[in-house]
């Protein structure tokens, strides 16, 4: 099958980008979308042109590396699927597609379809963890966890941090990503001690990284390859409101005397 691609080409973060048209005449319905791009890149390399840069690694939908816009939808038309698992059988011979990087101020383009999502790491670093040094843990069964809570924490923890939620959001908000982590840890008994601090810091960090706000459109939930629910965003708002009212950041370390 033949596929026509309009791909965003941008040399680096500071240069201007533009759409460039390519044809892949020998695509095959069994290929994954990324394998189809591999074929294009092999061809470009043979012709001495610069291959298209796109991020990818595990190619089995779990590492969260891949992701770009296909016709204005992150990861393309197949729901619950990352672009590495999207197969060409969902397209037709002669289809013309538009490929763009995820766009957000907090996700600057590095090259072509590759963006810098390190803002996500910085948000996690601001509080998306449970403070427990190696070796200081009690027995795994010392603290029973209600199965339902554990299951719901797992639902939220399934997030792969790909950034599709930000890309699809009309406001480039990272609310789904941030709330998934707040929900994951906040629903477990282990996560209670730092629950206020976590919500408070992560929300402020998300704001300072330049992400937008949530207008509850549900766009993120619809494109999330792991089915993370916007119910988590409500939980984040709840936790943040409570934390804002009651949480006190410690002022000084005290010190052992």
């Amino acid at each position: 099958m033949k596929i026509i691609l309009n791909i965003w080409r941008q040399q680096n973060a500071t240069s201007a980008g533009r759409m460039v048209r390519y044809e892949v005449p020998n695509a095959n319905e069994h290929m994954s979308f990324l394998e189809m791009l591999d074929v294009l890149n092999e061809e470009l390399t043979r012709k001495g042109e610069d291959p298209v840069t796109f991020e990818h690694d595990c190619r089995e939908g779990i590492c969260g590396c891949c992701g770009f816009m296909i016709d204005g939808v992150p990861h393309g038309p197949q729901r619950g699927t990352t672009v590495c698992q999207l197969h060409m059988r969902h397209f037709h011979d002669g289809d013309e597609l538009w490929l763009e990087p995820f766009r957000a101020k907090a996700f600057p383009v590095i090259k072509d379809l590759m963006v810098d999502r390190s803002a996500f790491d910085r948000i996690i670093a601001s509080g998306g963890f449970i403070s427990v040094n190696t070796g200081s843990a009690p027995d795994g069964n010392a603290l029973p966890v209600i199965k339902k809570c554990s299951d719901m924490a797992m639902d939220a923890a399934a997030c792969i941090g790909c950034g599709a939620c930000v890309a699809s959001c009309p406001n480039a908000s990272a609310s789904l990503f941030v709330s998934a982590k707040i929900s994951h840890l906040g629903q477990l008994p282990q996560g209670q001690a730092e629950r206020d601090r976590r919500a408070s810091r992560m929300v402020l960090k998300m704001t300072d990284e330049g992400f937008g706000y949530c207008t509850n459109t549900g766009e993120c939930e619809a494109v999330c390859p792991k089915g993370i629910k916007i119910e988590n965003i409500a939980r984040m708002h709840r936790d943040y409101i409570k934390a804002s009212a009651t949480f006190r950041e410690e002022t000084s370390g005290g010190g052992a005397g």
Binding site: G135, A137, G140, S150, Q190
Partner: peptide
């Protein structure tokens, strides 16, 4: 296992 549970790894539960 103890360490991971304490970190909040949502292992399957009974």
């Amino acid at each position: 296992i103890d360490q991971c549970v304490a970190q909040g790894v949502p292992f399957a539960r009974e």
